[in-house]
Design a protein around this nucleic acid. Structure first.
Lengths: 346, 346
DNA sequence: ATTGACAATGTTAACGCTAACACAATAAGC
DNA sequence: GCTTATTGTGTTAGCGTTAACATTGTCAAT
């Protein structure tokens, strides 16, 4: 029905079985459940596998067993320390299992996300990990139909699809504002992107507004500049706009450490001292935050640990499903912590 | 033979066919080759697909057709602008095909790479993309056995496995040294990691040595510090060591922009002006290079374009193989360019 | 009318693996 | 010695799709 070896590897399980003088099923057992096979047979089979350089075909295995071995994981961007760390956390946690990550990135577009989900569902993932709580209706429909556990991460959606591992970006940013207020800052501003594509960024802005209002501070000093995730350059640009429009701004909260770095660097170019002329804070505690001069006040997020939690839930959910029941929806809140450094005065 | 719906989606192609009043084969044709089906039937089938929320099972399709639709892509790290951009370039180039990236990262370990390759081969990828030219013997054996085209990128290995898309990291770093020499620097040093795990880093160091020797400059000012990829902090640390050991060093080439940034920041902390006290250059032209003050001299690499080239070769190789022949090994050299900025004086 | 070409659909048989059951052969319990 | 577990292995049937071929109907050219 098809030419042999369409980009495939040499031998099949049956050939291994033939060479070892056993049935294919025994070969399968040696690979997936070695302890039920006698030591002597196991050795024979392993030898045949070696000699033929046999590499099992997981597509066939998946079809037969109904288990793909895939975990779909969709993040906004790969080029972001935070998400990259989270992916590492997930992988690490799954490294002692036979589960494999099927990674995709959306470029912060829910429309891309929908396409990715559709594509990935064709691979029948055993769990689906999404970033954030903002999805198209069609995405939600697709996810409800498929029975795989769904985990939303990096956010705490009000109406979760199923499991959640994350933290409130709004609260975290609000905490930062409170700490700046404690330091004596009274006229804070916020710098973020122009659209609501980056929902975590939007949440941080909302958190800024809520906190400033609660503290009786001006809540309208918001510069939106650039498509999320906003760059260093856009941080620089936005800072200038901020100080032109509201010259008495004494502290600027940036949606991420990268834009905060851009803003600080712009100040240095213009000879404005940070934090004396203006304090600047970021979000995410990227490598650059601790290593810049002045070091950048920010919100530390345990990205790696977040990934580990996600991985644990994946394992639990699959274990439950193997026992015929379904893991009750989990809601895990992860650590964050305001870290004050040189870019804001205490 | 197995419980229905093990995490799977509702309906099968046969059910769609039943509802549309056609055979399963016709449904398959509507999905993969719609133009051979009459308009009327096509509409009926599409309607049935919609109504049942049918999502094809690609594992079954792959098994039957011998085409997995996967492209394996292995990079050292996801958290690196350069590689992330390259992955974006590949994805973009493959976005108008039915091919899907199966991503993996090695953490700069050839041993991890071997495991990843083995795992990925079980999915029968139609092409395999690796970073660099350094692989274990077993990896090379596995890749030779499988008939899928192999592409090595980000390097120009002397003995390529098959296709290559990259540039000589040694030459690029050498060019940088030459340009620094033209600027009047006579005592350059190099900062990199302690091991040879990061072969691109090692090549850059070799390029530094070759170029300095050729120019009659000291070639032994090399500080190795930290496990690659070395951090900002290690860059800072290494710079201090460099100037303690060879105080008259007038220019330092760092293995990447991140370590260069760390080095520059350390200078600023210590009140050493850059480039007056010492010039510093990086590699990669990360966002930070243009946005720092002083902006960082570096080697620009077209990471995204490199990925696009890789994607094009993947498509060509698969097209050739569909026509029954094999694409002759390609060797594509990609663009790089020394960019001198404020961190070195002209 | 008869032939041939072509277009649209159906039928059959895999693809490579594993769940479920069947069946020996051995060990344990009385 | 006989039943009853237990262990190790084989047999069978299918997972959901698609390549290859078979079949039917339609229409133009003889």
């Amino acid at each position: 029905m098809k030419k042999k070896n369409d980009g495939a590897i040499g031998s099949t399980m049956l050939e291994v079985a033939g060479r070892a003088g056993v049935s294919a099923m025994t070969v399968s057992r040696v690979l997936r459940n070695p302890q039920v096979v006698s030591a002597a047979t196991r050795i024979k089979v392993r030898k045949a596998i070696e000699e033929l350089d046999y590499v099992p075909d997981q597509a066939a295995g998946a079809l037969s067993s109904g288990r793909s071995g895939f975990i779909a994981c969709i993040v906004p961007s790969l080029d972001n320390s935070n998400f990259a760390e989270t992916v590492r956390g997930i992988s690490e946690e799954l490294s002692n299992t036979a589960l494999q990550l099927l990674l995709g990135y959306t470029n912060y577009s829910v429309h891309s996300e929908e396409n990715l989900v559709r594509t990935m569902l064709q691979r029948r993932p055993e769990a689906i990990i999404l970033t954030g709580g903002d999805h198209t209706d069609r995405t939600r429909r697709l996810l409800e139909l498929c029975e795989a556990p769904v985990i939303q991460m990096w956010d705490t959606p009000a109406k979760p699809l199923e499991h959640v591992v994350g933290f409130s970006n709004a609260d975290a940013c609000g905490d930062l504002v409170v700490r700046l207020h404690e330091c004596g800052y009274r006229n804070p501003g916020f710098i973020g992107g122009t659209t609501n594509r980056d929902t975590r960024g939007t949440d941080r802005r909302e958190g800024f507004i809520t906190a400033t209002k609660a503290l009786g501070l001006p809540a309208d000093r918001i510069i939106s500049s650039g498509i999320p995730p906003i760059s260093m350059q856009e941080g620089a640009h936005a800072l200038v706009q901020m100080l032109e429009r509201w010259p008495d701004t004494d502290a600027v909260v940036c949606v991420s450490d990268l834009s905060a770095f851009g803003a600080i660097t712009e100040c240095r170019r213009r000879g404005w001292s940070v934090p004396e002329r203006v304090a600047i804070a970021g979000f995410g505690d990227f490598e650059i935050a601790a290593n810049n001069k002045p070091s950048i006040s920010t919100v530390y997020v345990n990205s790696f640990g977040l990934g580990e939690s996600v991985g644990r839930i994946v394992k639990q959910a699959i274990a439950s499903s193997n026992q015929g029941n379904k893991l009750a929806p989990q809601f895990v809140t992860t650590e964050y912590r305001v870290v004050l450094r040189e870019s804001t005065a205490s």
